Computed example of a mutant assay.
Amino acid sequence: MLPQQMLLLAHDARRDRLDVASTLVRGPLLRAAAVAELALRGSLRAAGGWVERVAGARPGDPFLAAVLDAVPHDRPRRWLDVVDEDWHRAEDAVLDQLAAAGTLRTRRSRTWNLFPVRHAVLAEPARAQALRDRVRDTVLGGHDPAGLPIGDAVLALLAADGGVASTFDVREQHRHRDAFRAVAHRVESRLPGLREGTLYALAARRAAAS
């Protein structure tokens, strides 16, 4: 699923830890990935610049279910509000899922004996690298955007907008800016409103930390 894949993309394989550059915004990125997953499944849909819940079964995945519950059955919400709500719980929730599945193992420590840090070590780095290669190829492979798998396009756009340096560095984003714009258009045409709401959420997290 997209949230779990998003977190794997944020793993820095060279240092065997989560990407430092995206630390501040990883929560909103994971929630945005969950919103995209729910929208692609038909549980959420765009409604005049807002997002509304569609009647149907609640997903069995607890993280997806929690994100879906942020949208009441009878009241649309702004994309920003859904992406930003409980952002601080998202990373631990998805890490717990990946640890339970045996995809990675985690341990906790403190930086300078003050700040809590949760480390993540992959059980199968090659699988995460294959995912990263696939998502990178979505942008860098010269493909027709119309034919791109929408899930991979979402992951590529979130990684770029979130500054996930373990997937795309700044120079790549500048060098291939036309390809990134094409991917953004592909996502926005399928999930209108999601990117704008996500960008506002990312900006809010960065501003709060400055």
Rank of each mutant, 00 (worst) to 15 (best):
P28E: 14
D144M: 11
H11K: 06
Q4A: 12
A55F: 06
R134D: 11
E196I: 05
R136T: 04
P145Q: 13
Q173M: 08
I150L: 12
A101D: 12
R15W: 10
G163C: 03
L18M: 15
W79M: 04
L122P: 00
H11G: 01
R118Y: 11
T111Y: 14
G142W: 05
F168S: 00
G60Q: 11
H143K: 14
G142S: 10
D137T: 13
V71M: 02
R45T: 07
R205F: 04
T138A: 14
L68D: 04
P125L: 10
S109C: 08
A128F: 02
L148P: 00
D169F: 00
S189D: 11
E172M: 00
D61V: 08
A204W: 11
G56Y: 03
S210Q: 10
T198E: 06
V187T: 05
R15H: 12
L131A: 13
R58F: 03
R41K: 09
L30R: 02
V187R: 03
R127F: 02
M1L: 09
H174I: 08
T167D: 04
A203T: 04
L80F: 15
R45E: 12
V20W: 13
A128W: 01
R15G: 02
D16P: 00
L64C: 05
R186F: 06
D144G: 08
R58S: 09
V54H: 07
A130V: 12
P28L: 13
P28H: 13
L194K: 02
A207Q: 13
L98Q: 04
A130K: 15
H119V: 03
A101E: 14
G49C: 07
G56C: 00
P125R: 06
L202W: 04
L8K: 02
R177E: 09
A182Q: 14
D152W: 05
Q129A: 13
I150F: 02
V187I: 07
A159D: 01
D74H: 15
S109Y: 13
V25E: 13
G56N: 03
L95I: 09
P192R: 12
A159P: 01
L140Q: 03
G142M: 10
D69P: 00
L30I: 02
F63Q: 04
H185D: 11
H88I: 04
A32P: 00
T138R: 02
R195A: 02
D19H: 03
P59R: 08
Q4Y: 11
